[in-house]
Design a protein around this nucleic acid. Structure first.
Length: 269
DNA sequence: ATGACGGATCTAATCCGA
């Protein structure tokens, strides 16, 4: 680990209150400079700030709501909240955007929790899928160069775009998260905004890579029926500084785990 | 191949996730 490194992690925690112990372990062992959490499932005043402060994370942008959804970006370095956009005007807390200042440089960090979309991949009969598609349509306006500083876009995008992002491409083509309309729309969001998929920039597209395994599978590790639903995108210039991507698969095997695992991106500054 | 699990909530059964 270089002293000139900047590490950013994203993790759908599926209740930050229930899993604050796991978060603490993760922060101690991996020490990211910035951690973006999704599905915190609590209101702002219930967010366990103290636990983060004890470990040196003193800067927060928390957008929670009761029971569902919710995103939080926590940082060792100063952070300024830019916006928390209510995509599709549903009143959900699914986005927060911050400027992070790190050793004299600034970075814009988008933290997203895209709607899952329900079961039926047809917007005409499934309002949840309609919501997901409209949410993605609005994301197309998001430029990587909106602020004149490099940007990062992370989170649970709830879409596995590549064939190698799912355990079986053929068997998941009609399953929400891997349908052509979703993967094509996500590709448009990426292309229109000028974003680069930093995870796939580092891990060859031929290689299977998952960040989520259902709780319902009997033996998640042996069956390995995962999907890559969580993502780290960035401005093209960040590819020159990217030194590593780690998907912490082991976290799925921790006690009382989230069904998602953390992704850590490391950059040389 | 969907799994039949796990979280939050007006603590009992319901809604939701993906």
């Amino acid at each position: 680990m270089s002293s000139n490194s900047f590490k950013l992690a994203t993790w759908n925690i599926n209740s930050v209150r229930l899993r604050i112990g796991l978060v603490e372990d993760f922060l101690k062992s991996h020490a990211p400079d910035v951690l973006c959490l999704q599905e915190i499932k609590c209101q702002n005043d219930q967010f366990p700030e103290k636990a983060f402060r004890k470990l040196g994370y003193e800067h927060f942008a928390v957008h929670g709501q009761k029971g569902y959804h919710g995103v939080a970006t926590v940082s060792k370095s100063p952070l300024r909240e830019i916006a928390s956009t209510d995509y599709v005007s549903m009143g959900d807390t699914r986005h927060v955007e911050c400027q992070v200042d790190f050793r004299g440089k600034s970075l814009c960090v988008h933290n997203f929790y895209v709607p899952a979309g329900g079961d039926e991949p047809n917007p005409a009969v499934n309002p949840k899928f309609d919501h997901k598609m409209k949410f993605l349509d609005e994301m197309k306006n998001l430029r990587h160069d909106a602020y004149g500083v490099p940007s990062i876009l992370v989170g649970d995008l709830n879409i596995a775009p590549l064939e190698t992002d799912v355990w079986s491409h053929k068997q998941l083509l009609k399953v929400v998260s891997h349908t052509p309309i979703e993967t094509e729309t996500l590709n448009t969001v990426q292309a229109d905004g000028g974003w680069v998929d930093l995870v796939r920039h580092h891990v060859p597209a031929e290689e299977k890579l998952f960040t989520w395994w259902s709780y319902r599978a009997r033996d998640w590790d042996a069956a390995d029926k995962g999907r890559r639903l969580d993502h780290v995108w960035g401005s093209p210039e960040l590819t020159q500084h990217l030194t590593g991507i780690e998907v912490l698969r082991a976290a799925r095997g921790w006690e009382k785990p989230s069904d998602h695992v953390p992704i850590i991106a490391e950059f040389a500054i």
